[in-house]
Write a protein that binds this DNA or RNA. Sequence first.
DNA 1: CCTACCGATCGGTAGG
DNA 2: CCTACCGATCGGTAGG
Lengths: 191, 191
Amino acid sequence: MCPITSTRKLEIIEVATNLFKEKGYTGTSVRDISAIIGIEAASLYSHVSGKEEILQGICFDMAHKFLNAQEKVINSGVQDPQKLLHQVISQHVHLITENLSAVAVFWNEWRYMSEPFFSDFVTMQRTYEQHFKDIIITGIAQKAFRPVNATFSTMAILSSLNGIQKWHNYTLSPEEMANAFADLFIQGLKT
Amino acid sequence: MCPITSTRKLEIIEVATNLFKEKGYTGTSVRDISAIIGIEAASLYSHVSGKEEILQGICFDMAHKFLNAQEKVINSGVQDPQKLLHQVISQHVHLITENLSAVAVFWNEWRYMSEPFFSDFVTMQRTYEQHFKDIIITGIAQKAFRPVNATFSTMAILSSLNGIQKWHNYTLSPEEMANAFADLFIQGLKT
DNA sequence: CCTACCGATCGGTAGG
DNA sequence: CCTACCGATCGGTAGG
């Protein structure tokens, strides 16, 4: 949360992000992290209070990035639900492709956070999903979209987008993926 | 692989499935499993050769279920790509809802298997994805679907379906979900 | 950032 | 299926 962070702490978080992605949070030891940096495990504790603080840093940083990008689109004045959906999808895809490792941790390891971080994180997720859902609900009300189940459609779309981190192989650019997703789902939802 | 399995071994796999889902494979100890069953950790080794064998059992059992269900649809004689896609989606959704915990392990913990199991599992996944992709390619050739990127569309659809295990809350029946997914993606792919 | 170390727990084995 | 136990490793602390 504090914007002033030492470069060593940033290095720890970056190394941990890659390890948490590859081996999982519980499968990664603090010694794995310190060995890559080239210091003793005990020395990590000069920079972080514990293993979980690193996980919290990764997860909440991504959560804020997602929510900020989404709010920027929603507050941009765009009214057309199809255009709005296209833009939030595009922002989401770009954030994933620009933060592949952090997103993998964000998506697969967040459940290992203890309270109250766990619940705070869930609340942020729910907020993000709700903003998506609101766009779909508005679109249905304006007859831009079919009368689908908005909750279902939201989860179907977000799950699809989040899958990128599992199969992404760089053959498609972020723009191409964003447009392909938008085409698929907007045509899928259209009246 | 052996069809004759003691009930104790089945119990171990069932308990482990739930624990691996909740706490992850690396976050679950053999003592966690044995404690729930009510035996000593050492006694597990009368039924399984090790912790990983349990994971292998869960993952390959689900992999076979997915491939078998898919082959049954593909060999059923249905030709229309839209109907075929609807049916493989429906089978996939049903398998997920009937095996929520095992699918969560299958999907999130398979990477912890050692070789050659890891590679064998990846091969089965690729085969499954390829069958999906072939349906889309055929559909494009027959002008039933738009000229989309078939690999992308396959991964977009499968990721969306697999997301069920993360958000499923029993408000929709498997049939309702299967139809909602099929509607969304078939309309999304249609010419 | 290091040395030295802690108690707890890990997956697994020997022998019955 | 149990008792008894193994060496390895875990996250973390004390003290400098």
